[in-house]
């Protein structure tokens, strides 16, 4: 008897759960699972170039083609290099800003807001303003020349294009991640810091031995969440360099969209996307584990 009521209650609870999560699940299926399924499916098939309606299952052929192509390895290399360029600037920069703007100083609130302001600029806004500032005859090059330094190519030079896009990205993001680290810093109990000071710790020692270890998780979160974000950067690359010069800035995200829209090779694009998803999925899993740890 009690077993049955228990079962009924459990059924009712599942009903409540599904009723409340229903809209979210519907969005999940329509906008995440459906395209994921479609791309997985399409990445294993080939369409007859002369008859768009006839397709055949080709197994791993699309992936084999990807991983045997030097161009794709170049794209993967650019993607990893891009993440490697942006991440340290973001982590060190946001940590520095969070530390600085939690010290006692005049106008601290104002500077915090100022550092956060670039995060309010949509990616296209960042692209336009830095695109104009860093063009060959732009204000940055004029400044360099005025103080006697040679003008730089920035995004129009093959060597500097990727670091330039990385800097634009970091400038626009560092204040956002700062907010998370300020929250983490304010979370450190005062007594611990006071104890360190009473023990005669220098500011550097206090930072390295007390603050940094206690800030480990927020820092890891910033690193991982920022990596997810960096993987999908698109606007500055498409608008400023279009993947060039000589493919120097064709990241996986950019190249996938280009393969689908410019080269109209849907199957190849889907296979590339699956690779991107695997990379991102791994990163998100780490991010989720970090969020979970916090409970």
């Amino acid at each position: 008897m009690s077993g049955r009521t228990h079962q009924i209650r459990r059924g009712a609870r599942t009903g409540v759960l599904l009723a409340f999560t229903g809209p979210a699940l519907a969005v999940l299926i329509l906008t995440r699972l459906a395209p994921e399924g479609l791309s997985l499916f399409a990445s294993f098939e080939k369409v007859d170039p002369f008859d768009g309606d006839s397709w055949s299952f080709v197994g791993w052929a699309n992936f084999r083609q990807l991983f045997t192509s030097a161009a794709f390895w170049h794209v993967l290399g650019v993607t990893v290099w891009f993440v490697v360029l942006v991440s340290p600037v973001i982590v060190v920069g946001s940590l520095y800003l969070a530390w600085l703007y939690t010290r006692t100083m005049p106008m601290r609130g104002l500077w915090r807001t100022v550092a956060f302001l670039p995060s309010a600029i949509p990616s296209l806004g960042l692209t336009v303003m830095w695109g104009v500032a860093l063009k060959p005859t732009g204000v940055v090059n004029k400044t360099l020349e005025a103080i006697g330094l040679p003008a730089q190519g920035f995004y129009s030079s093959a060597a500097q294009a990727l670091p330039t896009i990385a800097l634009i990205t970091a400038w626009g993001g560092v204040g956002y991640w700062m907010v998370f680290l300020i929250a983490g810093l304010l979370d450190i109990p005062r007594e611990i810091l006071d104890a360190a000071r009473v023990d005669g710790a220098t500011p550097w020692r206090e930072f390295r031995s007390v603050v940094l270890p206690l800030l480990r998780r927020p820092l890891l979160f910033v690193l991982v969440a920022n990596t997810v974000w960096v993987f999908q950067i698109y606007a500055p690359i498409q608008v400023l360099t279009n993947g060039g010069p000589s493919e120097a800035t064709s990241t996986l995200m950019f190249d996938t969209v280009r393969t689908a829209t410019v080269y109209s090779n849907q199957q190849q694009a889907m296979a590339q996307m699956v690779v991107l998803l695997v990379l991102l999925g791994t990163t998100v899993a780490v991010q989720f584990a970090l969020l979970g740890e916090r409970e």
Partner: peptide, 16 residues
């Protein structure tokens, strides 16, 4: 739900 929604949906833009 959280795991899938943490993924920026732009990366799914092409099949979407």
């Amino acid at each position: 739900v959280v795991g899938s929604f943490l993924l920026p949906f732009e990366t799914l833009a092409v099949p979407l």
